[in-house]
């Protein structure tokens, strides 16, 4: 038998290949970054001064454009003074992987530069708090409303046109208004996240509930289910796995709105940290903070996905290969009917 192809249209890959590609998905960008950072002739458009020579305005550690630097060197040589010396370097906004790695490692142990600035973990905690409250408030109203809209056409007609209208207004546009209403601290930031997610949430949840197979409703009706039972015992459980996934995706959106929300009023949280570090030109710290957001997002999503698989095993029959095999073994031969009365 020939080995299966790597690229076959819509064919699944073996688990080992899937894992390998998953690792490569992260390794390849890292490799690209490393090449650009460590191989001098790829890019390195600047010169980092190591010795200023007799050029009075140069300082060791500063960076200059390669061609400008070459002109200075030529000028110094023709003037007979000591020329400056330097090494090729990438712009300061592209630190090398090991710099970012070190920054990641030291991120939580580095003292804030100014008194009154927050430690990284304090900034993160603040961001998480903003997201948590924003998403919780949005979901507490948005999910029930969405379910109502999905279940009852009247509810949908009464709310969805307006929701659809507000959805097109960018959440940051409400920034100044929210500051006027809620002040400058946590509240307006939470409000921005609520505005950003709530309206999408209602529409997405309503659509998911509407996708429930109408046959299930009819079956439940013929079994005597009344209106509230149809919603609570059929629509809700039938759409729960998809609702769970919707919320996972919407949580990602909430993170997007976080960055906007945090510059509203008093700048705070991880965004403030990033802006501060960029001001001090500590770009390795900036990258570290962005990566940390990525890690948190990925980890939350993976954890939620894991629990989703556990909660909704009936939706994802792929859960256990052993069980699937046993089931298939039994279902191949139908059981004979026993004799006798019920």
């Amino acid at each position: 038998m020939s080995r299966p192809r790597w690229f076959a249209v819509r064919q699944d890959l073996s688990p080992s290949r899937r894992r390998l590609l998953g690792v490569c998905a992260f390794l390849l960008p890292l490799l690209l970054w490393s090449i650009v950072s460590y191989v001098p002739f790829i890019w390195h458009p600047n010169i980092k001064v190591t010795d200023a020579g007799d050029v009075s305005w140069m300082r060791p550690g500063l960076q200059f454009d390669r061609h400008e630097f070459a002109k200075e060197v030529a000028a110094a040589q023709s003037a007979g003074t000591r020329p400056p010396a330097g090494i090729r370097a990438n712009p300061i906004y592209l630190p090398a992987p090991h710099d970012v790695g070190r920054a990641l490692y030291t991120a939580f142990t580095t003292k804030p530069v100014l008194k009154g600035d927050l430690w990284l973990h304090e900034s993160l905690a603040m961001s998480l708090k903003t997201i948590f409250w924003g998403f919780l408030i949005s979901s507490a109203v948005g999910v029930p409303l969405g379910i109502l809209c999905g279940a009852f056409v009247a509810a949908s007609r009464l709310s969805e046109p307006f929701v659809d209208f507000v959805r097109y207004m960018p959440a940051p546009a409400f920034g100044a208004l929210m500051v006027a209403v809620f002040g400058i601290h946590l509240e307006p930031k939470v409000a921005i996240i609520v505005i950003g997610t709530f309206f999408q949430q209602v529409l997405v949840v309503a659509n998911t509930v509407r996708k429930v197979d109408g046959g299930l409703i009819e079956a439940a009706q013929t079994l005597g289910a009344k209106r509230s039972q149809l919603v609570l015992r059929v629509l809700l459980p039938a759409s729960l796995p998809d609702l769970y996934n919707d919320l996972r995706i919407l949580l990602g959106w909430a993170w997007t709105y976080l960055i906007v929300a945090e510059v509203v009023g008093v700048s705070s949280g991880i965004t403030f940290f990033i802006n501060q570090q960029a001001k001090y030109r500590n770009f390795d710290n900036v990258y570290a903070a962005i990566l940390i957001i990525g890690f948190i997002g990925l980890a939350t999503d993976q954890i939620l996905a894991f629990f989703g698989q556990r909660f909704f095993a009936w939706k994802n029959p792929r859960s256990s290969r052993l069980r699937a095999f046993i089931t298939r073994l039994f279902s191949r031969r139908d059981q004979p009917l026993p004799e006798g009365q019920p």
């Binding site: 009819e218 079956a219 039938a238 939706k315």
Partner: peptide, 10 residues
Amino acid sequence: FQGYTLFPWL
């Protein structure tokens, strides 16, 4: 029903 319409979560 022809399409079974069993509740898949039960």
